[in-house]
Simulated scan of single mutants.
Amino acid sequence: MSSSAEQIRNWNGPAILGYGFRPFFLGAAVFAGVAMAVWIGALAGLWIIPSAFGPIEWHAHEFLWGYLSAVVAGFMLTAVPNWTGRLPIVGHPLALLWSSWALGRIAVFFSAGLPPLLLAGLDLLFLALLISMLGREIVAGRNWRNLKVLAMVGTLLTGNAVFHLENLSGEALSQGYGIRLGIGSAILLIAVIGGRIIPSFTRNWLARRAPGRLPEGFSTFDKAAIGLTAAALLLWVARPGSALAGILLLAAGAANLLRLARWAGWRSLSEPLVSILHAAYLFVPLGFLLVGSAALWPEQVPPSAAIHAWTAGAILLMTLAVMTRASLGHSGMPLTADRRITAIYVLALVAALSRIAAGLAPGASWLLEVAGLGWILAFLVFVAVYAPLFLKPRRA
């Protein structure tokens, strides 16, 4: 049987279909920048989004199940062959999967004229296909321990299904179970996968340099922290304003902060490609602390600022960190961040901090403008830097 590398090299079609991360990372980045510009224009009254959802609901839905789902697909399609030793999904099956994602984005955007059940089917198709394809590979490769990662992707799909059920019943979507389940699934994915890749990548980078403290390995503490994280998120999804949820969220925030401190991130400041992973994960405990505080003291801590610590902070920065690094490594490029890649991180960090600050200071509307501009510029630079890598064959 040919290896994954041989399978990729033997693909004679367009280079962008030669590896799973290529179409999905590029599609996610282009979509994220355009969607933000469209949303800002809609809020400014320049045009109307022809969606069945309101502007805020469309923005939240497409961040989770448009942008994030595409990044998750790119990551999983790249990681699963390494986990299982089986051939990667390339070529026409990959094109079919990407097309189902693009079809979902078109359907949601023009959903004002679609029957709700048809809309739900078109939108849910992508993640259902992804889970089916990856599940087959994981089972065939007998890689049982990574089924839990696929189950978390299934929870992301479930959140989207709940969102559509709430739409059918006429419930308030922006405050519904579906959105919270989608956010919770994303944060749990970051906690689990981030707990693998951040200390591993940091250790590999530090081991080639001066001796000193290295990240601590996965231990019982990590298992307990992930368990507490899952429990806090589950209760937040079910009862977001309860005192017990607030207490568990604060405890999970403290646990994840301690977990991050064990990974020696301060020693990686000279390499942005590594340090951005730690900066991104910092927004996970920050989000827990803010969301927990908002549950306990809603008049002092606005829920909008709390939620955006997770979305504009942890999810945005971690996805960009993963996309920039994985794209370099699997394109045969050196694993180091030049000034352009560092600019992506700085712009995204400005966007995240500005959006959180805007929630804490509702009267400072200029912060929203800074956040939106930083977001758009970050993805514009990403596309300018990485599109050439995605559109040409891998460097030998």
Rank of each mutant, 00 (worst) to 15 (best):
A28T: 10
A28V: 12
A29W: 03
G54I: 09
H61C: 02
M76F: 13
G85W: 13
P93D: 11
L97H: 06
F109R: 00
L118C: 06
L125C: 14
F126V: 11
L127H: 05
G135C: 07
G135V: 11
R142I: 10
N143S: 15
N146Q: 13
L147V: 13
L147S: 08
V149Y: 05
L150N: 07
N160I: 07
L168A: 12
S169Q: 14
I190L: 13
A191S: 14
G194R: 01
G195T: 13
I197F: 14
F201T: 05
N204H: 11
G212W: 12
G212N: 09
G217N: 14
T220C: 02
A224Q: 09
L235E: 13
L244T: 15
A251W: 04
A252V: 10
L260G: 02
L282T: 11
V284C: 03
P285K: 07
L289T: 05
E299M: 12
I307C: 00
W310V: 05
A321P: 02
R325T: 04
H330F: 08
G332C: 06
T336G: 04
A337H: 01
D338E: 06
I341W: 00
T342I: 01
A343R: 06
I344Q: 09
L349D: 02
V350D: 08
G374K: 07
A384L: 14
Y386M: 15
Y386Q: 05
A387S: 13
